[in-house]
């Protein structure tokens, strides 16, 4: 089948629209301004100092956006983030995604030189091939989260939430199926390993 032959004007227009992943150009400065309202929990530079609150710095743009869309639509359930995301417009979500993606990621949690738990985590990560989706350095991409350097308590809670069904991710089938074969000890080892990755 031959592709639709574009009119010249349409071509120019389309090229313009598609240049940046299709969405309108995001405004990092505006994202930064909106993010002031998030800093109380997620940290001034997107690096969280608070238990069970994720760091957002260096997360992929689309990961941030999707999670906010999921909170807003209620498919990711959280009493704190639900109402916050409800108040955000599409434009604000795009700007927040661009802003947090532009920040330097958190430094890894210091680990003891001989770290048996991290070693166990490394083996599990290889066995379950976390890198296929999360990237070789676990920095994430597209809708997939950065894991490297994330808070250990946050990672462990996320894995447990996927396991219990409290978090369903994309709603089709998701991390829930990755964690299906993991025990709680496995999840603790994985969380520790990822938190200590640079």
């Amino acid at each position: 089948m031959t592709p639709v032959r574009p009119l010249l004007f349409a071509f120019g227009l389309v090229a313009l629209l598609l240049c940046c992943g299709g969405a309108s150009a995001a405004d990092v400065a505006a994202g930064k301004a909106t993010a002031e309202g998030c800093a109380g929990c997620h940290g001034a530079d997107g690096i969280s100092q608070m238990p069970l609150v994720p760091s957002l710095a260096g997360e992929p743009d689309y990961f941030i956006q999707w999670q906010l869309v999921f909170f807003r639509g209620g498919s990711r359930k959280n009493e704190v983030m639900g109402p916050i995301a409800e108040a955000l417009s599409d434009e604000e979500i795009r700007n927040l995604g661009a802003y947090y993606a532009s920040l330097p990621p958190p430094k890894p949690q210091p680990a003891p030189t001989s770290d048996a738990l991290a070693q166990a985590g490394a083996e599990l990560a290889a066995k379950h091939r976390c890198q296929v989706c999360h990237g070789n350095d676990y920095s994430g991409s597209g809708p997939t989260a950065r894991l490297a350097g994330q808070r250990e308590d946050v990672l462990l809670k996320a894995l447990r939430d996927f396991k219990s069904g409290a978090r369903v991710g994309s709603g089709v089938s998701s991390m829930a199926d990755v964690v299906y074969g993991l025990s709680d000890d496995d999840m603790r080892a994985l969380a520790h390993y990822m938190a200590t990755r640079p």
Binding site: W66, K127, H128, R129, C130, V132, C133, S141, G142, P143, T144, G169, S170, G171, V172, S173, S174, M175, A176, D177, V178, G181
Partner: peptide, 15 residues
């Protein structure tokens, strides 16, 4: 075969 699952949102799980 990939053990993982990211649902239909994940990009490029293909080896």
């Amino acid at each position: 075969a990939a053990v993982g699952v990211a649902g239909m949102l994940l990009a490029g799980a293909a080896q």
